[in-house]
Computed example of a mutant assay.
Amino acid sequence: MKMRYFLIGLQFLLSGINFLNAQEKAFSTEGWWEPEGEKFSPVVHEDRSITFRLNAPQADNVTLLFGEWDIVEKKMKKDDLGNWSINLKNVESGIYQYNFLINNSFKKLDPVNPNIKVGTNIYGSIVEVPDTPARFDQLQEVPHGEVHIITYRSIVLDKTRKMYVYVPKIYQELKDVKFPVLYLRHGGGDNEGSWINDGRANIILDNLISQGKSKPMLIVMSNGLIDGSWSSGSTIEGMNTLEEELINDIIPLIENRYHVSKNKKDRAIAGLSMGGGQSVVIGLRNPNLFSFVGDFSAGLLSDPDIDLSTYIPDLFKMADSINQNIDLLWISCGSKDPRFLGHKKFHSILNKHGIKNEFHQGSYGHEWQFWRSQLKDFSKQIFIK
């Protein structure tokens, strides 16, 4: 018993000594002002090569998984400090996703790179290789608009939701002008912020507007999921709910809060993947509300087992009505995307039934590189008729 009390007393004594030592050690800012060393990872060099590094001393092997669709796998080399590295040469300018694969089984983000692709999941780290002159989706020295995050009440869903709204710089200067609006929808694995964070919609429009290649417009980006699951926005019930939310909650809110046009000639709807299907369904079901409809890689339009008449009754009997009311029906898909052949078939069916549309493609898969370029090209063609 005496030994027990002795040990307890010794513990308190040591704790007191440690406390006093901590009190005697003064706070210091020493080292704060030293210049920052070389970035650890990723390092983009002037010759458009990229060095990737990962500190993983316990790993047996590490592989770089580079790309979003055509993923390149490269084995990395380990140094004496446990740092794995690789240098990719001759990388074309663009924005790329990557991950590290550890021991052929565990996928890992780059822990020292805060730039990530995120939606309903965290997908990977992001690195950009800039171009000269700057690309259409690259930050340039032009007047920059604003991105507003609006919290609103969705009556049909009985919940509070968020939407992002891009407002061009010139909007603040032309207070008597009623601006057009593009309602831009995201994909099944994304959220209402994805067109800004991954799609760079604000940067693309800033550049286009400053070059006179696009009419100044607001872009409204709301959440296209019902219950958080990636497929909830593509069901018949989900489409009906989202259509009601858009018409009864979102459009009135935008038209009351901003000086925008209420004329259908100044409304467009477009989206990628799941959002592309939503845009075609909602847009063609409401030709009294929208004059421009855009689809970028929608799975709904390319699956032969899906009967579109359950979403749009009498679609192929509506040729005259669609042609009279929709100024542009834009259908697009990357040629490396499994949805490509289905899109070409859908385009042919529309032509067969006399429904005017444009088909666009590019050498891409189901990826942001393609969707950014589609937003650029689509934005140049709307609100000009």
Results as ranks from 00 to 15, higher is better:
residue 2 K to R: 12
residue 3 M to G: 14
residue 5 Y to G: 15
residue 7 L to G: 13
residue 7 L to E: 13
residue 10 L to S: 15
residue 18 N to M: 14
residue 21 N to W: 15
residue 25 K to A: 05
residue 27 F to R: 12
residue 31 G to R: 02
residue 37 G to P: 08
residue 39 K to N: 03
residue 42 P to C: 03
residue 43 V to N: 01
residue 43 V to F: 01
residue 44 V to F: 00
residue 44 V to P: 00
residue 50 I to T: 10
residue 53 R to W: 06
residue 56 A to Q: 01
residue 59 A to C: 05
residue 62 V to I: 11
residue 65 L to P: 07
residue 67 G to Y: 09
residue 68 E to H: 07
residue 73 E to W: 00
residue 73 E to N: 04
residue 81 L to H: 07
residue 81 L to M: 07
residue 82 G to M: 00
residue 82 G to I: 01
residue 85 S to F: 07
residue 85 S to E: 09
residue 85 S to R: 06
residue 87 N to G: 15
residue 90 N to L: 11
residue 99 N to L: 13
residue 101 L to Y: 02
residue 101 L to N: 01
residue 102 I to D: 10
residue 104 N to L: 05
residue 109 L to N: 14
residue 113 N to L: 08
residue 116 I to H: 02
residue 116 I to D: 03
residue 117 K to F: 14
residue 117 K to H: 11
residue 119 G to I: 05
residue 120 T to K: 03
residue 120 T to Q: 07
residue 122 I to F: 02
residue 122 I to K: 02
residue 126 I to Q: 00
residue 127 V to L: 00
residue 128 E to I: 03
residue 131 D to S: 10
residue 134 A to Q: 05
residue 139 L to C: 06
residue 145 G to W: 15
residue 146 E to V: 15
residue 151 T to Q: 14
residue 156 V to S: 04
residue 159 K to H: 08
residue 160 T to A: 08
residue 161 R to L: 13
residue 163 M to Q: 02
residue 163 M to Y: 03
residue 164 Y to P: 06
residue 166 Y to R: 07
residue 167 V to H: 12
residue 169 K to W: 09
residue 175 K to D: 01
residue 175 K to L: 09
residue 175 K to A: 10
residue 176 D to M: 02
residue 179 F to W: 15
residue 179 F to R: 14
residue 184 L to I: 01
residue 190 D to C: 14
residue 190 D to M: 08
residue 195 W to M: 04
residue 201 A to P: 06
residue 204 I to P: 06
residue 205 L to N: 04
residue 208 L to M: 13
residue 209 I to C: 08
residue 209 I to E: 04
residue 212 G to L: 07
residue 215 K to F: 12
residue 216 P to K: 11
residue 225 L to W: 05
residue 225 L to N: 10
residue 226 I to E: 07
residue 226 I to S: 11
residue 230 W to Y: 14
residue 230 W to C: 12
residue 231 S to Q: 06
residue 237 E to K: 07
residue 242 L to I: 05
residue 244 E to T: 04
residue 253 L to T: 09
residue 257 R to D: 10
residue 257 R to Y: 12
residue 257 R to I: 15
residue 260 V to C: 12
residue 261 S to K: 08
residue 264 K to I: 03
residue 268 A to L: 03
residue 268 A to D: 03
residue 269 I to M: 13
residue 277 G to F: 02
residue 278 Q to K: 00
residue 279 S to Q: 08
residue 279 S to A: 08
residue 280 V to A: 14
residue 284 L to C: 13
residue 287 P to A: 10
residue 290 F to D: 05
residue 291 S to Y: 02
residue 294 G to P: 05
residue 297 S to Q: 04
residue 300 L to M: 06
residue 304 P to N: 00
residue 304 P to I: 00
residue 306 I to Y: 01
residue 307 D to W: 01
residue 309 S to L: 06
residue 310 T to E: 15
residue 311 Y to E: 15
residue 311 Y to A: 12
residue 314 D to G: 01
residue 319 A to N: 11
residue 324 Q to H: 12
residue 324 Q to K: 15
residue 324 Q to T: 09
residue 324 Q to I: 07
residue 330 W to Q: 01
residue 331 I to C: 04
residue 331 I to T: 04
residue 336 K to I: 03
residue 346 F to Q: 01
residue 349 I to E: 04
residue 354 G to C: 09
residue 355 I to M: 11
residue 356 K to N: 11
residue 359 F to V: 02
residue 365 G to H: 08
residue 366 H to L: 01
residue 367 E to K: 11
residue 368 W to R: 14
residue 371 W to Y: 09
residue 373 S to F: 15
residue 374 Q to T: 08
residue 376 K to G: 03
residue 379 S to G: 08
residue 382 I to M: 10
